[in-house]
Design a protein around this nucleic acid. Structure first.
Lengths: 161, 161
DNA sequence: AAACTAATGTTATGATATAACACTATGATG
DNA sequence: CATCATAGTGTTATATCATAACATTAGTTT
């Protein structure tokens, strides 16, 4: 991770956020879902579905098949608790799930902006209204009505330069 | 495509650009490479590698294997003649390859911004310096040194709203 | 022509993701 | 309490996307 920080706090926060958000949406954070969310947060880097599957299998001493993982990820994605990094086919914990909440109409217009270090794979998510504004302006010029946005910037993080 | 335009002109331009860029880099636009580039441009929408493979096989009446297609795509990508749409695992012709030229150090800092209609799959690429600037600013705040950027915005195009 | 190199062909396999259906657990309802 | 409905999970098979490794061909240089 880029900043020296108390990782356990970070995980705890993520978990209590997740619980709150689940309650709010009448969704259940089952043991499996919690386990996957924790694994993703403990890693703190984008994690592939099959890596996650192996970790799960190891933890629970039994075979875990792909659909189990993908369904769980889908659940977490739908609540904005994790994000998919398209350029890596990988999944990462959302640092501000409150900002990525689905509405009754389904998902909000979602804006996901990531900076991904190609060296250490540390990935930082940002919320940036100036950036959002520029994207909206560009969309307007094209008469395009945006729904979801992903920005993935690869390069070198502070530490790895 | 979003704008009513002369599609053949568009293809012709792409092809002559491609030839110029290849010459400039001492690269060869072989028959296969030209064929793939044309197929991508004729479609004018993001095309999967396997779709492309089937189209190639059909055109040339012979079996074409994945590596053939992927190598060709890699070549075209390396010269900035096509782009990969990560959220779709698909490839599309670059509308302004002059702006995506590799340097002697390898690829420039590349900025690829796409608006992808979820209805008709029309995909527009834009160049937008205001947007680039915001991304640079955000990177600077993180002390992140960006190398490549992809923005993919999904939603509804003018026609499909 | 021989030797070298870039391009393409070929076979096999790895990596990512989903469809379809079976089973289980949990809570609602009579 | 029994039964029913539903959400969640398990299981098997398969689809989809991508690459490794090595063989062959074609074009260039000497």
């Amino acid at each position: 991770m880029t900043d020296c920080h108390n990782h356990q706090t970070c995980i705890d926060d993520a978990l209590s956020s997740a619980k709150a958000i689940c309650t709010e949406h009448g969704a259940k954070l089952t043991a499996l879902r919690e386990q996957v969310l924790l694994l993703i947060w403990e890693s703190h880097k984008p994690l592939g579905a099959y890596t996650l599957m192996d970790m799960l299998a190891k933890q629970s001493q039994r075979r875990v098949a792909p659909p189990t993982v993908y369904r769980t990820l889908e659940f977490l994605l739908s609540l904005g608790l994790v994000h998919r990094i398209n350029s890596l086919n990988a999944y990462i914990g959302c640092t501000s799930p409150q900002s990525h909440q689905p509405t009754s109409q389904g998902l909000n217009q979602q804006a996901n902006y990531f900076f991904i270090c190609s060296e250490c794979h540390d990935t930082q998510e940002i919320i940036n209204s100036a950036l959002s504004l520029e994207i909206s302006k560009a969309a307007k010029e094209l008469n395009f009505s945006p729904k979801q946005q992903w920005l993935e910037v690869t390069g070198l993080c502070k530490q790895c330069q």
